[in-house]
Write a protein that binds this DNA or RNA. Structure first.
Lengths: 195, 195
DNA sequence: CCAACATACGGAACGGCGTTCCGGATGCCA
DNA sequence: TGGCATCCGGAACGCCGTTCCGTATGTTGG
């Protein structure tokens, strides 16, 4: 808002080489640490893996949410972009919705602790919350609207509530073989159908 | 299993008066603290409320789960006992199941942080996990069996998975007016119905 | 090639929290 | 009332997130 860069070259003069190197190292280290210890892995562990000090983490990623978003951004984008594609390719909007939610569930259940972090009311996770919502709620809304228009599901379900519900059901996936989030999500989506 | 007390008087000689007083004070303080700050309230806060040292908490309730169970035992028992009663009084087993689950949801959504604690894989919560499961899974099983026998729901849902799913859906209740666990649970239960 | 400056780094330090431990106090019973 | 088993308080320890600043390093103009 302060100044519009009317030129074309980047207004930010380019970061120092070591800074870029460290940011990359941190992303790699965090991704690896998330896999082995979940997204709640202690900050110091990530720092050790990346070979940097803890201060460097906070300089690049002020909150844990920023780091998580940076690590998973590509996958979240892919999920968001898959929505319209599925809607175009599927036989019915409800089928597209079901497939898209499956995609979302597949993403969540393979990220230890992420589903729980998504629901945390800790202020440090607000960015995470916001990013997921901004990116996925509109897509889900579009799918829901199409299914409602096709008279396949009841019209009184909003995308926000559905996504939070699905996210919640994914908490603790893999902790007990008797708990299968996919099945419950399927049941939930089945419950959406008009009778 | 070691020795059966064949007599009638209590084998444990009775605790000291101050110990009983403190235990009562701790239960009251914890109940109040859970209401205002959730079940994750710092141990020291409970100690201050009860007017005791932190050591006294750990002596009476070795883990946080023990304290939570002690505080809510009555309500959990009441919920468990309501199962058979509902089954006897309701028109159909499915109605009884739905009502019973409503009871469970009502309990969970009014206990800030409890649903999340129930799913935590932290070792400190194992007792909590075990108590809920021991007490409620058989009841839920009975209701499910009856509904299956009446051909009202699909037969491939186990009580453990259902209860965990319902518990998960209750996480974060009240944090956002757009998120209504009751509605999602209803949808889930609706999804159980045979078509 | 070399200063001199902006930028970035490392890790010590701080506060909050759960948990343990033990010297001292206190109820209980003979 | 004396003596003992029981119980209490809170200091102390370790883990963790977060902040901060003296130091190191990349960059750039001369």
């Amino acid at each position: 808002m302060a100044d519009i860069d009317s030129g074309s070259e980047q207004p930010v003069p380019r970061k120092r080489a070591d800074a870029r190197r460290n940011e990359r190292a941190l992303l790699d280290a965090a991704a690896a640490a998330f896999v082995t210890s979940g997204v709640d892995v202690p900050v110091r562990d990530i720092a050790v893996r990346a070979g940097v000090g803890v201060g460097t983490i906070y300089r690049h990623f002020p909150t844990r949410a920023d780091l998580i978003v940076a690590v998973y951004r590509h996958q979240i984008e892919a999920c968001a972009e898959a929505g319209p594609a599925l809607l175009a390719d599927s036989d019915t909007p409800h089928a597209a919705l079901a497939q898209w939610i499956d995609l979302f569930v597949d993403f969540l259940v393979t990220k230890h602790g992420l589903a729980a972090a998504l629901q945390s009311d800790d202020a440090a996770f607000q960015t995470l919350h916001a990013y997921f919502l901004d990116r996925l709620v509109p897509v889900c809304d579009q799918l829901l609207d199409a299914a409602v228009a096709a008279d396949e599901i009841r019209p009184d379900m909003d995308a926000y509530g559905l996504l939070r519900g699905v996210g919640n059901l994914c908490i603790g996936a893999g902790s007990d073989p008797r708990y299968d989030p996919r099945r419950l999500v399927d049941l939930l989506v089945a419950g959406l159908r008009v009778r």
